[in-house]
Each structure stands twice: as C-alpha cells, then as structure tokens.
Design a protein around this nucleic acid. Sequence first.
DNA 1: GTCTATAGAAAGATAGAC
DNA 2: GTCTATCTTTCTATAGAC
Lengths: 194, 194
Amino acid sequence: MPWPNEQKGRSRERILQSAFDLFAARGYDKVTISEVMREAQMTHGAFYNHFGSKQELYAEAIGAGARASALAKLQQTEARGAELLTEFMRIYLNEAHVRQEHSPCPLAFLATDVANGEGEVRGAYTQVFKRLISIMSRTLPADTPRRRERALAVSAMMIGGVAVARALDDERTVKALLHACQVMGEGLLGEGLT
Amino acid sequence: MPWPNEQKGRSRERILQSAFDLFAARGYDKVTISEVMREAQMTHGAFYNHFGSKQELYAEAIGAGARASALAKLQQTEARGAELLTEFMRIYLNEAHVRQEHSPCPLAFLATDVANGEGEVRGAYTQVFKRLISIMSRTLPADTPRRRERALAVSAMMIGGVAVARALDDERTVKALLHACQVMGEGLLGEGLT
DNA sequence: GTCTATAGAAAGATAGAC
DNA sequence: GTCTATCTTTCTATAGAC
C-alpha cells in the first residue's frame, strides 16, 4: 500500500528528525513546537495536521531517534558479534556522542526527561530499551554465562555514563568516566572480545 | 557566628527540601515556584527573599538532595568498607528508590534534566558526582586494581540503572535491570566483598 | 519576611483563508 | 497541507501593604 500523499510523509519525517534533535539537545519542556516546525521548514500552524499533541510527537520522536542511532547504522554494516559490540561501545562512550555531534542515543539523552512524561512516551522508551537488550544479548556468544544480565548491566553503564557525562562541568572527569565505562564494560562482556 | 535570624534559615531549609522532592519527582520545568512554596507552607511572593531565581534554587537543591541521600545517612552509621558499599548498592538499586519512597539520589533522578540547565546547576551536580566517586574509591581496599576506574564505572551503572528504570513502563524489566546491576556491580567491586 | 495582586512574556492549541 | 492570526492559560518575577 503506497502512501496516499508522499509529500505528507516527507514533512512528517522532517518534523520527527527536527523534534528528536531538539528534544535531545535541550529537553522536552525547553523546546517549542514553533522551533521544531521552523527547523523542519514549516510554520507552527501546520503541526497539528501531523500530530495530535506535543506529547504524541515526543513519543514518536523517540522511535525516530532509535532508527537514526549509531547502533542502527552499525547493524547495516557487516560488523557482527564481538566486533559489533566493541565498535558500538567505542562510538557510544565517546565525547563526540556526549556533545551530540552525531545522532545521539535517545536512551541516554532523554532518560530522566522521559520519566517525567506520559504513558505513550514511556512506552516508546521501553520498546527502544528492550530492543537494545535483545540485540546485545543475542550478539554475545551463546555460551556466555549470565548473558542477559550482562547485557542489562552494561547497557545501564553505557547509558548512565553518557547521561552523567552530559551533565558534568569538568572535561577531565568526563574523559575519565567514559574511559572507565569502556574498559569495565569490555571486561563485563568477556575479556577476549576482539 | 550564629544566624542573624534563625527563622529565615528554617524557611530556607524547608524550601530546599520541598524543591528537591518536587524537582526529582517531576523535573525542573514541570514544577512551579508556587508549588514549591506551597509545599514549604508559604506563598510564592516570599520566594525571592531566599533565592534570586529558579535556577539558583535548582543548583542549591541538588546539594540539599545529596545531603539527604541514602549514602549520607549510611555514612553516619558504623558501616564501613565492603559492608558500606554492598549496603549502599542494595538500597540504591531498589524499587523503593526508583519509586522515590525515600529521599532519592540527585545524580540519578536529575541527570538529563541537569544537562539542560545553566552553569551553576551543572557545577553543583559535578560537585556531588565527584564526591561520590571520591567516597567509593576511598572505601575500596587500597590494593584494588584500577580502584578509581571501578568507582567510576560502577557509579555510572548504578545511576544509569535507576535513571532508566524510572523511565520504563514494564515492571518485570525494571526488576531484571536492577538485579542485573546489583549482581554485576558487586562483581566489579571485587568478588569477595562481604 | 511573608502576604496579595499584578505585570509581562511565553507557549500549546485552534480558526479560517488559500 | 500550510499559512497567518489569535485564544487562552500558565508561569517567572516584581510591587507594595502589613
């Protein structure tokens, strides 16, 4: 079933990308619908032809952020297994990610923001998180002890590391934190990963 | 030097506690000064006799939250060394903490919220984080390899675990996440801790 | 220091022309 | 579908009485 109007789909996609970038950079409440629409090259009156409310936009933007994320792009390369995981951690626990120099991880950039949101927003976040755990768990060797627990704990460490780094004032501490998470994360996923 | 007016100090302390509780529960932008003052049993006109702006209140509330935290209380007991660390992790990575049934950790509850704040707010957050790392690091046995890196990585895991858990929709995933962080965290801090 | 009252600005959502 | 214009509400911050 092709789209009734291809132009509408493109506008919608521009709004979602603009919304995710802005929400990640400044948080839900500090971003206005006018700004999102301006970034998407429309005026704010057009917004309600695509979404019913700002919260609905937020929920959908989380999914859009996940589709644009580093992990989604990595999965389109030929990297698999241990190589995929170490490369993912290297990109994730990086100052360029903290500074939002590429499309960031919604789980890290929106964590406490989402906790203050409504049901549909938290539902979208939960879906993205479960999907990450599923991918990380399946990517670990089948005989890894406590495979799912490792995936959960390392994810929490990565998300927490980036979320905290973004709040910090002190570049030296940021560097040390990201590095520590990378070293200890690789340890948890199995010493001889690469 | 005793306080010029003891009553003023008490009002100020009430405002700070009320502010931290509300900011942690709903996020900076979703809390109004009127609400904070009402919870502190005053009207909002009195606010500006204590603080110059809402952001200034936020910065100070982060410090107040740290002083009221589980770790601060634990340090006033006789628990030390491995016992202190395992007890801390048990209280921290707990559903009661996620549900804010006791004074929560500002690092976990305000992480992405602080990242969107101004300089003084991030400065206060950084101070609290550095202090946590210092305490955890010093509490580990002096001959622990990579002592500071362990403290940083486990802190990120704990903060990330609680921050993500608060955003999640699904109680089963929350339980699994908190448990995984506890098991893997104890592993990182040294197998034979207790 | 605390109160009531209000100024002044901002933002979500809607109406109606094109 | 997108635009301009506006309704309506909410909130920070201030003024001035007590």
